[in-house]
């Protein structure tokens, strides 16, 4: 093998990689936040809703979890625009990633909510908490604490999956890599760099999620142990 590695293109191209990585962060933080809210609402509906609502949420979750993200992105970007709803690549990416994230969050949060014992709800009732207070303080926060590890890994997986949005020309990290490699013909080097950037991003996301966990869950902070 006589191939010589050459990273010289980095001298002019590094701002492109930074911009791409930044868009990846923007896209994924937006869709993680929106998807988490969507998923939590759906999980509440799944556990406490009426039969019709429960069924609808079930259909949503199963449809999304059993079809590839690539196809979901195509339906949002190409499909909706052919029906007259034209969204930019970035907005389509956020919509598709949010809908995807929402389905996985629903399943994870449902497990958490179902692990809250009935007696907790009865105790909250006895203490005279309102319905909203009960849901927030007695159901959601402890439920989230229990499933937080699963939730965090799902968030990191979504960040990695966001690379698929390069296929609808959202100019995030992977799309940047595709552009740079077609400019420089240095595909091996380019994709190696991008792999390293993704590794660094996943480490960063894990760190950030760990810190958020410490802030959110007092018990974990004080005792150093998960619930």
């Amino acid at each position: 093998m006589s191939y010589k590695f050459d990273f010289a293109f980095l001298a002019d191209k590094w701002p492109d990689f930074v911009a791409g990585a930044w868009l990846t962060v923007e896209l994924t933080v937006a869709s993680i936040a929106l998807g988490f809210v969507l998923g939590t609402v759906c999980a509440l509906a799944r556990v406490y809703g009426g039969p019709v609502l429960r069924r609808l949420v079930g259909i949503y979750v199963e449809t999304i979890r059993n079809t590839p993200l690539l196809i979901q992105i195509f339906i949002v970007y190409f499909g909706l625009s052919s029906l007259g709803l034209k969204l930019s690549a970035e907005v389509s990416a956020i919509v598709a990633l949010t809908v995807n994230m929402g389905a996985y969050t629903t399943e994870i949060m449902r497990a958490g909510i179902q692990s809250i014992q009935r007696t907790q709800l009865e105790a909250a009732d006895c203490l005279g908490l309102t319905r909203l207070q009960t849901i927030l303080h007695v159901v959601l926060l402890p439920a989230m604490e229990r499933v937080y590890p699963a939730l965090s890994s799902q968030f990191v997986l979504l960040m990695l999956a966001s690379s698929i949005t390069s296929q609808i020309s959202a100019e995030e990290l992977t799309a940047t890599a595709n552009l740079v490699q077609s400019d420089t013909y240095r595909s091996f080097e380019v994709y190696m760099i991008v792999a390293v950037v993704y590794l660094a991003l996943s480490a960063l996301y894990r760190l950030a999620l760990w810190a958020i966990g410490l802030v959110l869950f007092e018990r974990r902070r004080r005792l150093g142990t998960p619930l």
Binding site: S166, S187, Y198
Partner: peptide, 23 residues
């Protein structure tokens, strides 16, 4: 850790385009 921290798409590009250009 390496594989779970890298998107599958990048692994795919590395083995198709990357290995292709290396020979």
């Amino acid at each position: 850790q390496l594989i779970q921290g890298t998107p599958l798409l990048i692994v795919l590009f590395l083995s198709y385009f990357g290995l292709g250009i290396v020979g």
